[in-house]
C-alpha cells in the first residue's frame, strides 16, 4: 500500500477523528487533567479506600452489575437454546423479546419503580406467595435486587439476540448427525452448541456487564443504598456541583470501563475472524 493510499484512508477517517477529538477525547482528557490538577491523584485514590463511601458504592455497583449479567446470561441463553432446538413460535418470541430494547432506560426505571413499590404488583404478588409458604415478606425499595430485576428485563433480550444469532448459524446437519448417533439434548448442548457459541455468549455478557455498570437511568430512578456508582457521580455533579471530585471519580470509572471495553473488543474481533461462532 502506497503512502498516498494510507493518507487517503486517513482522510476518509478524518471527520470521525475530528468529531471524536472535540467531543470525546478532549472531555476525557479534561477528566484526567481536572482530577490530577485540581483534586490531586493521591486524593483521588484516597476516595477509594475501603472505608470510604465511594469504594462501597463502587463495589456495590460491580456486584449488582455482575449479578444482573449472570442472570440475564443464564435466562437469555437458555431461551435461545430452547428456541433453536424446538423451533416453535420463534417469530413471536423474537418479536416480543425485542420490545424492551426500544423502551428508554428512564422509562424502564420508572416502570419497575412502580412495580417494586411496597404495594406494587410484583412486591405484593411475591409477598402473598412468600407468606403462604411461611417466609418473611420482602421489600425491594432501596435494595440492589430491585436494580437487578429492572436490569434483566432489558438485558435478557440483549443476550438472547446475540446468542440466538450465533446459534442459528450452526449447520443443522451437524445436529442431525449427532441425533442420528443417539446423542441426547444435553449432550448436544454440551458438545455442540456451547463449544460453538461460547464466544458469542462471552461477547454478549461483556456488553451487558459494561452497559449495566455504566448505566445511570435505571438505578437513578430506583434508588439504592449505597448509591449506584454512576448515580453517585451524577449527584456529586448535579447536587454538590463539585466538579473536581466528580472528575476524580469519573477517572476511575473510565479506567475500569475502558478495561472492560478492551476485553470486549478483543473478543469481538476474534469472534469475527473465527468463522461462524
Amino acid at each position: 500500500m502506497s503512502m498516498d493510499e494510507r493518507l487517503k484512508n486517513f482522510l476518509y477517517f478524518s471527520p470521525l477523528l475530528i468529531f471524536f477529538a472535540v467531543v470525546l477525547f478532549w472531555p476525557l482528557f479534561n477528566v484526567f487533567y481536572t482530577s490530577s490538577k485540581e483534586f490531586g491523584l493521591a486524593n483521588a485514590l484516597a476516595l477509594f479506600k475501603p472505608d470510604k463511601y465511594a469504594w462501597k458504592s463502587l463495589i456495590f455497583t460491580i456486584r449488582v452489575a455482575f449479578v444482573s449479567t449472570l442472570l440475564s446470561a443464564f435466562f437469555g441463553y437458555s431461551i435461545a437454546l430452547i428456541l433453536v432446538m424446538r423451533k416453535s413460535y420463534e417469530n413471536v418470541i423474537i418479536q416480543v423479546l425485542r420490545v424492551p430494547l426500544f423502551v428508554p432506560y428512564i422509562v424502564i426505571g420508572f416502570i419497575w419503580r412502580a412495580l417494586l413499590a411496597p404495594k406494587g404488583y410484583v412486591t405484593m404478588i411475591l409477598n402473598i406467595l412468600l407468606t403462604k409458604l411461611g417466609f418473611e415478606p420482602i421489600n425491594f425499595m432501596g435494595k440492589g435486587i430491585s436494580i437487578n430485576i429492572a436490569h434483566i428485563w432489558l438485558y435478557i433480550p440483549m443476550i438472547f439476540i446475540i446468542s440466538y444469532a450465533a446459534l442459528v448459524k450452526i449447520n443443522p446437519e451437524i445436529i442431525e448427525a449427532a441425533r442420528s448417533l443417539g446423542a441426547s439434548g444435553w449432550v448436544i448442548i454440551k458438545k455442540i452448541y456451547l463449544p460453538l457459541t461460547w464466544r458469542a455468549l462471552i461477547t454478549g455478557t461483556s456488553i451487558v456487564f459494561l452497559a449495566a455498570f455504566v448505566g445511570v437511568s435505571i438505578p437513578l430512578i430506583l434508588g439504592s443504598e449505597p448509591t449506584y456508582f454512576p448515580v453517585y457521580i451524577y449527584y456529586i455533579l448535579n447536587q454538590e456541583f463539585d466538579i473536581a471530585k466528580a472528575s476524580a471519580m469519573s477517572m476511575v470509572f473510565v479506567a475500569i470501563s475502558m478495561f472492560l471495553g478492551y476485553i470486549y473488543f478483543t473478543l469481538s474481533i476474534r469472534l469475527r475472524r473465527g468463522g461462524y461462532q
Binding site: 470525546l24 482528557f29 479534561n30 481536572t34 454512576p230 451524577y234 455533579l237 466528580a246 470509572f253
Partner: peptide
C-alpha cells in the same frame, strides 16, 4: 464511545 460512561463523559464535557 460504547465503553465511555455517559456520566463521566458529561463531567468532562461540562468545562469543554
Amino acid at each position: 464511545p460504547q465503553t465511555v460512561p455517559a456520566v463521566a463523559l458529561g463531567v468532562g464535557m461540562l468545562p469543554v
